[in-house]
Design a protein around this nucleic acid. Structure first.
Lengths: 166, 166
DNA sequence: TGTATTACGGATAAATAATATCCGTAAAAG
DNA sequence: CTTTTACGGATATTATTTATCCGTAATACA
C-alpha cells in the first residue's frame, strides 16, 4: 500500500505556492520544471487541488496557480485527500456475512455497526488523518525556513522570479 | 491508496484462530470456506503470516494453522505488516534534489535528514502504526465475545468443529 | 510401505490501478 | 487575432493486485 506520488508532488507544489508573493501565480509548466516532474501528469494533480478549492487556477497569459486561501488554513490532510481521495485505507468487504452462521443483514434503512476488525482499522486510519489534519502549510513553511540554507531558498526564489518574468 | 484485501482476510483468520481450543489446527481450505474467499489465494496470506511467525503451519493430515503465540502477544500491526509489508505509506523521491538550486546530496556514508514534507508524512504513518500496535488479538476477542450474539458465535464454532472432525 | 492430506513456494495469467501522454476547448491578455 | 494558460476527455503504458495452477516435501495413518 503506497500513496501515489501525486501526493508528494502536490505537497511540494503547495509548499512553493505558500511562499509566493501576493498576487503572483505560477503556471503548471514552471512548477513541473522546478521539480523535474512530468508536466502533463502534474496538471492532473493540480486540477484535483483546484477542484478541492485548495489552489485556484487562472487562464490566459500571466495565468497559473496560487493558493486559494491562507497557508495556515490548508492542512496536509486537505491536500492528501484532494489528490488521493477521502476513502479509508481499509475497506471492509463484510466477509462476516459469508460465515455459515451469520447475523442477518440489517432491515432496510438501518445500518449495522461495522465489524470489530473494521473498527480498529478505521480508528487507525483516523489517527493518521488526525495527524495530517494537525499540520498546515504555514507550519511547513516555518520549518523549511528554519532548516533550509538561505543560499538554497534564495537561489530557487531567484530562478522562479526569473522565469515568471514576462 | 488501499490496503490489499489480504489484510482483511488475515485479520479475520487470526480472529478465528485466536478462539481455537488448544492443540487444534485449521487447514487453509476450511478457513477459506468459512469466510467464503478463494482458497489458493488465501494461502498466500497465511504463508506470509507463517513467515512472520504469527501463525504456525503443520503439514500432513490433521495439519493446518494455529497461532504461533498468545493472542495478547499479537498486535494488529504484526498482522498488517506481515501481509502488507513494513514499508511506509509515503515514499519520498527526493524531488527537492531536482530543484535548480539544490542542496548537495550528502557525502558518502552520511545520511541527510529527510525533507520537511516527508517527515510530516512519516509521523502520520507512525501514528497509524502506533494505533495498530496498541490493539491485540486478545482485545479483539474480548470485543467480539461481547457484541456478537451467542447464537452466531456458537453456530460458527459448531460448523468448525463438525468440519474439523475426522 | 504406501496413500491421503496438507503447507509451501514457484510460475503464470487476468484484472485493476497508477503513471503518463496527447489533444481539443475555452478563457484571458495584449 | 494570436498567444498563453487551465481544464477535461481519451488513450496508452507500466506496475500492482488478485487469482489460479502445479510440483515438492512433510506428516499421519492404515
Amino acid at each position: 500500500m503506497q500513496l501515489k506520488n501525486h501526493v508528494e508532488w502536490a505537497l511540494h507544489c503547495c509548499s512553493v505556492l505558500a511562499s509566493l508573493p501576493d498576487g503572483e501565480r505560477i503556471p503548471a509548466k514552471l512548477l513541473a520544471e522546478l521539480h523535474g516532474i512530468p508536466r502533463e501528469y502534474l496538471s492532473k494533480a493540480l486540477q484535483a487541488l483546484s477542484t478541492a478549492e485548495i489552489v485556484s487556477g487562472t487562464l490566459g497569459p500571466n495565468g497559473g496557480y496560487r493558493l486559494a486561501r491562507a497557508p495556515s488554513e490548508i492542512s496536509f490532510l486537505d491536500i492528501v485527500e484532494a489528490v488521493e481521495g477521502k476513502g479509508c485505507t481499509f475497506v471492509c468487504t463484510e466477509i462476516r456475512d459469508n460465515m455459515p452462521c451469520a447475523e442477518k443483514p440489517p432491515s432496510k434503512g438501518k445500518k449495522r455497526r461495522p465489524c470489530a476488525v473494521a473498527r480498529v482499522m478505521y480508528d487507525a486510519d483516523e489517527a493518521w488523518r488526525s495527524h495530517l489534519r494537525s499540520v498546515t502549510l504555514a507550519d511547513l513553511a516555518k520549518t523549511v525556513e528554519k532548516e533550509v540554507p538561505l543560499r538554497v531558498l534564495k537561489g530557487n526564489a531567484k530562478w522562479l522570479a526569473a522565469n515568471l518574468d514576462r
